[in-house]
Simulated assay, not measured.
Amino acid sequence: MGPAVIASGRVIPELTIDGTDVGRARPLSGDEEERVRRLAEVVMPPANCAMIADTKPRQPRAPQVAIHAGLDAVAEAMPEAQAHRRSSATDRSPAR
């Protein structure tokens, strides 16, 4: 689902709290949100065991949060990979 969201141009630039520029895979269609919800229902506990740092006692993140984070990671990685491929192709061009 992540590559399809990115291929359709649905990457929103955003700044994190610390000022880091990131890309978010948004907005998701209603069907995509439903897929996220269904996936979250069946995800095994070890797959969603990331903890929320500022809670006492520490609490696990909701599976939907982990899935959205994965989609955002795809949004971040794909443009960087494309830029790397372009720069690598330029680096291999014959010198004049």
Score class of each variant (00 low, 15 high):
P45W: 01
Q59L: 09
P45I: 13
H68M: 07
A25H: 14
M44F: 10
V36H: 02
G23K: 02
S29T: 15
R61L: 14
V36F: 06
R24H: 05
I52L: 07
P63F: 05
I67F: 03
R37L: 08
L71G: 00
C49F: 04
Q64Y: 00
L71H: 12
L71P: 01
A47Q: 09
L39G: 04
C49A: 13
I52Q: 09
V43M: 09
R35W: 11
P27S: 14
H68K: 12
C49Q: 08
Q59K: 12
R35A: 09
P27I: 03
V65L: 00
A50S: 09
A69L: 03
P46N: 11
E34L: 03
R58A: 14
R24D: 09
S29I: 03
M44T: 15
R37S: 04
A53V: 11
H68L: 10
E33A: 01
D72L: 05
M51F: 07
M44E: 10
D54T: 04
Q64K: 10
R26I: 06
V42Y: 02
L71Y: 13
Q59Y: 11
P63N: 04
S29F: 07
V22W: 04
A40G: 12
A47L: 12
V22R: 13
K56W: 10
A40V: 11
S29L: 12
P60A: 03
A53D: 00
L28E: 03
D72T: 13
E33K: 06
V36K: 10
E32L: 02
E32I: 06
N48A: 13
D54A: 05
L28A: 07
M51K: 10
A47D: 15
